[in-house]
């Protein structure tokens, strides 16, 4: 199942911590996964989070940020995601 607008949700949370870098990080993560933005499926989100974790800067609390992204996605799409 495609999830429409997921990028906006993730970028919104990321931007709170890393500002303009958020879009770059998402692009890099998708590139690493070899997945296009509109191809993102629910079952890929766990993998996306794992790749995203490696792309985040060390200056921030990455685990906390991933939890925030997961919570935002759950709220937005009523999803049940596995905890990282």
């Amino acid at each position: 199942m495609d999830i429409i607008g997921w990028r906006g949700v993730v970028a919104g949370v990321l931007a709170e911590r890393v500002g303009i870098l958020s879009e770059v990080i998402i692009d890099e993560t998708l590139e690493e996964m070899s997945v296009a933005e509109d191809e993102m499926q629910i079952h890929m989100l766990g993998s996306f989070m794992k790749h995203l974790y490696t792309k985040l800067p060390n200056d921030i609390d990455r685990r906390k940020l991933l939890h925030e992204i997961r919570d935002s996605l759950m709220t937005e799409y009523h999803l049940l995601l596995a905890r990282n």
């Binding site: 911590r17 890393v18 870098l21 800067p57 921030i60």
Partner: peptide, 13 residues
């Protein structure tokens, strides 16, 4: 701080 992190990330990249 957001700007600094973004700048640092961009510079690294």
């Amino acid at each position: 701080e957001r700007l600094r992190i973004a700048l640092k990330g961009l510079m690294l990249r």
